[in-house]
Design a protein around this nucleic acid. Structure first.
Lengths: 250, 250
DNA sequence: GTTCTCAATTTGTCTATACATATTAGGACA
DNA sequence: TGTCCTAATATGTATAGACAAATTGAGAAC
């Protein structure tokens, strides 16, 4: 029956420029995001979609698999596909290079290396970075400025065993984050975001009053389980906003 | 030649439990994430992968399309597929329901509605939520507790034009975020994360000293451009960590 | 030397089919 | 009534082939 009803349904059958796969996907996503198909609702079976769109199963399978990959639907054998009920609000957190971020705001970016120290890992480094004691590490402290005002204090620890090239770099002019983004791939990252009151030394570096609320972003990255770097960025609170934007259709 | 070399390559040919598609994907992802194939490197052509894995083009196409969808490679007709160079550190930010989050830490969750007010949108509501003046809105203030200690102050604005059902809900027992997650789909969200010093009233509600650094998470959600809700969550700084984890293989 | 055209190459999409696998509804049987 | 088995069903994975679309390289024409 499918064969007769679809006749010679080539690709350009009722083609309005976009791929059939995309049209089906847009239709289904639209119904889900509009609320027409609420969480828990059963999406039509593959064979039903085959009939409505007069196409083969592989095409609708690609659509549904794709929606399942992005988490918009859940699929269960024998049961069907169901609009998933989102358990968490998940969002894509964009953590750009600080230089790019500052310039994106249309402000002048400044950078100053405050301290650089190569050492064998101490106990605190072991805890922070997750490397063995005495592994060579590079500790960096630097300040990022926006419009000639302190914008962030960066406190970074680099695992030289994983990234020996870091020793050849001149971090007095090149921010370590910029170099890392371009040269060191990672497979896993963890972020912690919290708030703290500026103590006296921190307040001095950031040129704010003691006790000012600051936003703290800590990031650790690994490559296949091996620690790469741990960084702590402290921003004067009122100046800084982390922004995350999410569109599920991505 | 492919036909003879692959002989009867059924699905269970050298199958070690996982799908061939997954094995190919893991192999390629591994090479990219290990740095063996740096950004800009050309991934083998589909026909080359067909030969190495003795499989059909659809199978390797699914792998490469999937990698392109997650942004790990970029594909250009006639040219091939290339490892993309990541522009920003992006991470998946999990923003769970507070109740789930507290219970996930093994602490007792408590909730108290402090104030509820239905009103026609004022000018401040217009700015915060993006609705027209005099649109009906619901303003909620509530406190979330963890282990009998204040954990977050929630200050929420709901667009009743988009979510009229909210009026039927009893938010004195059901936290609005829990109800929204289950009943109201959204298509776009924006998050701002910052730090502030607790002023006197805030310090009183959260039972901390005046001036304590607090973490502020502001979220606005839309459905197809129509504002749904704007919420501001203030957490006593030392108590709260936002956690984001990222594995590109997702 | 420059421009134009055409053919080769690679990805994009789709079809029709096949068998595997998980799950469940319902019937056989105790 | 309760339990086990079986058959039906829907998804998961894979194949071989086909044509479309974009891009590029090389040769032809000027």
């Amino acid at each position: 029956m499918t064969a007769t009803s679809k006749s010679n349904a080539t690709k350009s059958d009722t083609n309005s420029g976009i791929a059939l796969y995309q049209r089906i996907r847009n239709d289904i996503e639209g119904r889900i995001l509009s609320g027409e198909w609420p969480p828990g609702h059963r999406v039509p079976f593959e064979h039903e979609l085959m009939d409505s769109y007069s196409c083969s199963r592989m095409t609708v399978n690609k659509v549904l698999s794709g929606l399942a990959a992005t988490g918009l639907v859940e699929r269960r054998r024998r049961a069907g596909s169901f609009v998933s009920r989102p358990k968490v609000h998940s969002a894509v957190l964009q953590i750009p290079d600080l230089k790019a971020e500052v310039e994106n705001r249309g402000e002048r970016y400044g950078y100053k290396l405050l301290d650089q120290q190569k050492r064998a890992a101490l106990r605190v480094d072991k805890v922070r970075l997750g490397v063995d004691l005495r592994t060579p590490v590079l500790a960096l402290r630097c300040r990022h400025d926006a419009a000639n005002e302190p914008f962030a204090l960066e406190d970074r620890l680099l695992n030289l065993k994983a990234v020996p090239d870091a020793l050849q770099q001149d971090f007095s002019t090149l921010p370590p984050s910029t170099w890392l983004v371009d040269h060191v791939p990672w497979t896993e990252a963890e972020h912690r975001i919290s708030a703290c009151n500026a103590d006296k030394p921190l307040a001095a570096v950031l040129k704010v009053d003691e006790g000012t609320a600051c936003l703290v972003v800590e990031r650790r990255t690994w490559r296949n389980g091996e620690p790469i770097t741990a960084v702590r960025l402290v921003h004067p609170g009122p100046l800084y906003d982390l922004m995350a934007r999410f569109t599920p259709s991505s």
